[in-house]
Amino acid sequence: MNSEKETFQQKNFISKSIFYRFSQFVGFLLGARFFIAILLTFALYVSTFFLFNQDETFRKFVFDFKVHGIIFCTVLTILAGGIINQFYDFEKDHIVKPFRMRLQSFIAQRYFLYVYLFLCIISLGIAWLISHKVFVFFVVYQFFMWFYSHKLSRILILNNLTFVSLTLYPFFGMMVYYETFSKKVLLMAVFLFLILLCIDIVKDTLTKSVDKAFGYTTIPNFFNNKATKGIIISLLIITMAVSMRLIMKTGISGFMAYYFSGGLFVMILCVYLLLNFSRKSKFITLNILRLWVFVGIIAMLLNGIESKL
């Protein structure tokens, strides 16, 4: 009888230990925004090969270790940025993201900081081996990642502009690396900037009260609902104008033409939803816009494959 009881206790201890380790692992992935980093890595590879890289063959691109090194440094920097951001937003996230914080509670905050420093050092080390210019590029990137989390995320308008700019910074780096400057690429960058800005402001409307309580001065808690709604709808209308410009003036074709044409209807739907400006309509709008960004990556991939065949 005692033997059976001891066996049961051992099994219970093992299962609890496995659950604890698994929770630590999941908590770390969420804290580092691992899944966002995967999406951005996918987007970087797609845009680099099919948009910025106009001349290289697929074989040459695969063996261009300098490009892979830059993208790898970008991924490490994004993971480090996610960690330092959750470190500064720790108290706020307890209210906004309780499930994630419950998982992260299995790991002491100091371990997140250790990993943050480790990722930054590895990223800068690899960047230094690639070239001094790449090293400076990532020093600037990491500095603004930290400065955004430490200070800029609490400053009106600068918080939104900096967040979106940091998201697009690696893509700008690849554009400079390949010297791909054209009207089409510029308008596509403006389109993406505007749609990400809309996403960030809509997201802020859903955390308005919490942001205000913790000292984050955002557009929704600085202006009234009517003004905030007007700002978001105006940005969506400008995004529609950029889409129309892309379709009519740049000769864009294939799946990307369908994407930007369909985007006009998506923006109109979002404007219609935001006229109500209820929490449900804002949540639906946020997820529609996020989904549309992902659809854009897939459209670029399909368009690129079609053009390469």
Rank of each mutant, 00 (worst) to 15 (best):
T162M: 07
T57L: 07
Y177F: 13
K184N: 14
C120P: 05
I84G: 07
S182G: 09
N160S: 06
I130E: 03
Q142D: 15
H94C: 03
V140K: 01
T77M: 04
Y45F: 15
C73A: 15
V136S: 09
M145E: 05
C120H: 00
L152D: 05
E91K: 02
K151Q: 05
F171K: 06
D55Y: 11
I95V: 15
H132A: 14
E91Y: 06
I126K: 02
Y169G: 06
I121A: 15
A43T: 11
L79T: 00
N53W: 10
F52K: 02
Y141D: 11
I70M: 04
Q142C: 14
S131C: 06
L39P: 01
F90W: 12
V140F: 13
I157N: 09
I122P: 11
V176I: 15
W146N: 00
A43E: 03
I122G: 04
F144A: 13
L119I: 08
F163G: 02
T180Y: 04
R154D: 00
K97T: 14
V164L: 01
F42M: 14
L119Q: 02
G81W: 06
H94T: 08
F138Y: 04
Y111I: 02
S153V: 05
F99T: 12
F181H: 12
F65S: 13
T167K: 09
F72Y: 10
F63Y: 14
A43I: 00
T48K: 00
L166P: 01
F138W: 12
F181S: 09
L161D: 12
L51H: 04
G173D: 08
V134Q: 12
L168R: 03
F181V: 01
D64N: 14
F49Y: 05
T41Y: 12
L44E: 02
F147A: 12
V164I: 00
F135S: 10
R59D: 15
F61P: 02
Q104I: 00
H132N: 14
F87Y: 09
R154F: 07
R110H: 12
Y141P: 05
I107T: 09
D55F: 13
I84V: 14
F49D: 02
F58P: 03
V136H: 11
F49S: 10
V62A: 14
M174K: 10
L152A: 14
M174C: 12
F181C: 06
W128C: 05
T48P: 04
L156E: 11
